[in-house]
Design a protein around this nucleic acid. Sequence first.
DNA 1: GTTCCGCATGAATCGATAG
DNA 2: ACTATCGATTCATGCGGAA
Lengths: 292, 292
Amino acid sequence: MEIKTDLYLGDSKEQLKQLPDNSVDLIVTSPPYADQRKSTYGGVHPDRYVAWFLPISAQLLRVLKPTGTFILNIKEKVVEGERSTYVMELIIEMRKQGWLWTEEFIWHKKNSYPGKWPNRFRDAWERLLQFNRQKQFNMYQEEVMIPMGDWAKTRLKNLSGIDKIRDASKVGSGFGKNISNWLDRDKAYPTNVLHLATECSNKNHSAAFPEELPEWFIKLFTQENDTVLDPFMGSGTTLTVASRMKRNSIGIDVVPEYYEMVRQQLKPVELYLLEPPIRYEEVSPQRRIAVR
Amino acid sequence: MEIKTDLYLGDSKEQLKQLPDNSVDLIVTSPPYADQRKSTYGGVHPDRYVAWFLPISAQLLRVLKPTGTFILNIKEKVVEGERSTYVMELIIEMRKQGWLWTEEFIWHKKNSYPGKWPNRFRDAWERLLQFNRQKQFNMYQEEVMIPMGDWAKTRLKNLSGIDKIRDASKVGSGFGKNISNWLDRDKAYPTNVLHLATECSNKNHSAAFPEELPEWFIKLFTQENDTVLDPFMGSGTTLTVASRMKRNSIGIDVVPEYYEMVRQQLKPVELYLLEPPIRYEEVSPQRRIAVR
DNA sequence: GTTCCGCATGAATCGATAG
DNA sequence: ACTATCGATTCATGCGGAA
């Protein structure tokens, strides 16, 4: 199957109207923050941010599949010594639109922007707001499991053969919990705190979105051949990652330079994707034989 | 000078009325979250949480000095698959009361509560909301500077009690450029993300709060002989730390068992504090000699 | 005296079952 | 229908006893 990438040049509110209902599995985006990046986007005043975003989120609600997910990367800026409240107001208004505010992930930026202020430390985190259309949505948790902490490293690793048999017998005789689950356990599920460094900014776009961020959510909320949308694609990080992971992708941006840059970038990827796809189902049996 | 600890038994909203205006330098508290801890506290329904808290925050606004700070530890729970919005509503309402919402620190709980669900990962962070009365407030940033190297981090972890106080003296101000240069090279300012594990409850009292948490904010926002208030003291972690750090403290709790427990705990501390106080400025030179 | 291992225990959350 | 209770799930941490 062929992987497609569609690009739209123009305002998201208008361009999104071209997309059909219920056609997107995952939306990952980092919109311009209020009054930030004035040079490229013109800047939206904090007081008008919610009113500016709501028509767009209404379109996103329409194009998202009922089982899909919307990840919104955002952080309020400081205005006159106070944190702005427009993000909180946005969440409240989006819920009135019909969105479910399912979760708030924290992106801990390990190398945050430097600086020193007399009444404030460096800001080292951003919000990753998860919205859904319904309580039941697709989530592939096993795809993002991480290596365990000290516990398994120091203890489970040392289990010898005889110990494993003994533990297995406990399961058979009804003792304890499901030990067999723990024997092959070297990984644990992650939490809702993501530790990622910001990308070394060799790109022109001012949004420092590390590739690991969309990659993590694409793994978690989509499968191959699903469709990922970024209505503020900027330098196209989300789309690049989606293509590499064999997901269809849709990108929108109002800046012609970004549109053209992403179009050029994606050309070699598209050629690569014309090769016949390899299905995991066909490969797995062979791999298992090889392991033996 | 003598360090005092005042305890009040009863509802915070009422007990706070006994405190004079502009008398507290720092408020650090972790109120019962909505519908949590029903066994000990009544349990406040999420829909009524804001209305329940606002009269208390009004009193806190009155007793806090204009240059003081209010740190509120809180986290919304999940209700029917969605994050509750009462924390956001509380922030918005407290601003109408006259509070400035200056900053939101993140407490990353390394050992979060375990569990697995089809649509959600473990919750590993809580909010530490900073409120102030005015844009100009006391902040002693140098007190919480962190060592650059990992070696010091692990060493500090094993320090306890009096050792931590002594260690703080190294960062004490009042010396010339030599010290500040040394500080600049070996220490860095922290960010607004705090990494602390929750205290394990094998001790006699279970604290929702690791001691490092109030300690960090007490260092950051108060000096010796200042006054720290915790209107929901629980097992009294904040007060214990404040006493150890030679700050006056005021604690309130509605549960008689907690009140009595804290009263018993603080007795030995108070006796210790009757000794003539040791000023850091007097001690430091000797220690420097010893180091050589 | 170290190191190692067993174990209990958390500001949790979901889904099923019971009134 | 709507609420209250319960079992199952999960993993970092510190304590205490054992090698």
